[in-house]
């Protein structure tokens, strides 16, 4: 546990203030840690991932005896010390060669973990193409139906989104969209398709890791070509790195901690006024793109409603001698009003 220090000067006070919890959070900082033996492949993969994550990345140059699935105390210590909330731990053992573990933290404690094995990979340097500028936000592309149904892949998607793009921003410069990171899966095996129906019934996923499809991570540069319309046509060129991953061990988040982590701030007043988080009533956009509003037009007077005309309801001839129909009607109305008034008077008396 770190001792809590009281800031002695304005600079350290500002530095501590920057670490305090905020309503809208900064992007997650990732720490890249090498385990006792990482191996050439994992080291290189971590380096490339770090190139994509930069500038929100910290690299630990030394080896560390850290086993996230057994003892997470050192991860928690590093998280607090560096104010980081993501870890990528590279470890290669005989049992699990070329493993990368993604660890996500909440409040400097481990929230959930996901281990992947690197099967095949190609470096950025192997693609002789222009690379994305560090610090530019990537687009993310996920392709497979399992990202919506299978708990392992839902977790992987959430983890990777947090890793690459987890920052809430309100505006972006469209010319700065340079690259896309695409995460696709192999074909869904029929066993998994059948299992999905039983899974919903039992609620427990069968842990057969071999049946899970491979994960293909590719990154491409985007070229926007003029298409004659407002929306440009997109062409992709491979940029690297490209990884083929298999899923291995994982831990799910503690439900209580997950609930805490998913708490949202109350919406601010200006957002509510803008219509965020609230159903916008009486407003719609028509096909021309114009915003149309419906206003309140007052209550309809049902007494003046024209109902079906019947002969028997017409005023008697002796009452409306020489009068037009219209005049007769208006006369009846005023009569009704008079009646109402007199009734009211009676009530008052």
């Amino acid at each position: 546990m770190l001792r809590t220090v009281k800031p002695k000067n304005a600079r350290s006070k500002r530095a501590l203030q920057a670490r305090e919890p905020k309503e809208v959070e900064d992007p997650r900082v990732a720490i890249f840690v090498k385990g006792t033996h990482a191996g050439e492949k994992v080291t290189a993969v971590m380096k490339e991932l770090m190139a994509l994550k930069r500038p929100h990345a910290i690299s630990f140059s030394k080896k560390n005896a850290v086993r996230p699935f057994e003892d997470a105390t050192s991860l928690e210590f590093w998280a607090q010390k560096n104010d980081a909330s993501l870890f990528v731990v590279g470890q290669s053992t005989k049992k699990r060669p070329d493993g990368l573990t993604f660890v996500r933290m909440y409040d400097h404690r481990v929230l959930d973990m996901c281990e992947v094995g690197v099967e095949g990979w190609k470096s950025m340097a192997d693609f002789k193409t222009p690379k994305a500028t560090p610090g530019h936000k990537p687009l993310l592309h996920f392709a497979s139906e399992l990202f919506d149904t299978h708990p392992r892949f839902i977790q992987l998607k959430s983890m990777l989104m947090d890793f690459f793009n987890g920052e809430v921003i309100d505006a972006i410069h469209l010319a700065g969209l340079e690259h896309v990171i695409s995460i696709s899966l192999g074909p869904t095996p029929p066993s998994l398709n059948a299992a999905m129906s039983t899974l919903q019934a039992t609620g427990a996923p069968n842990e057969d890791l071999l049946s899970l499809p491979k994960v293909h991570v590719r990154s491409y540069m985007i070229r926007l070509l003029a298409s004659g319309t407002r929306v440009p046509r997109v062409e992709l060129t491979p940029m690297g790195p490209s990884l083929d991953l298999t899923l291995r061990r994982h831990t799910d988040a503690d439900p209580e901690m997950w609930k805490q982590a998913m708490k949202r701030p109350k919406l601010r007043k200006q957002d509510v006024e803008k219509g965020v988080g609230k159903k916008r009533k009486n407003l719609d956009v028509d096909e021309m793109g114009d915003l149309r509003g419906r206003i309140h037009v007052g209550k309809q007077d049902l007494g003046k409603l024209q109902t079906r005309k019947m002969k028997g309801l017409k005023p008697g001839r002796e009452e409306a001698v020489g009068d037009d129909e219209n005049e007769g009607e208006s006369g009846r109305d005023s009569e009704g009003e008079d009646e109402g008034r007199s009734r009211k008077k009676r009530r008052e008396v």
Partner: peptide
């Protein structure tokens, strides 16, 4: 600058609410 809508995917927070 394109004005982005608030995200629809819910990701866990890194720190508790202030």
């Amino acid at each position: 600058l394109a004005q982005l809508p608030p995200p629809t995917t819910q990701l866990p927070r890194a720190k508790p609410l202030p």
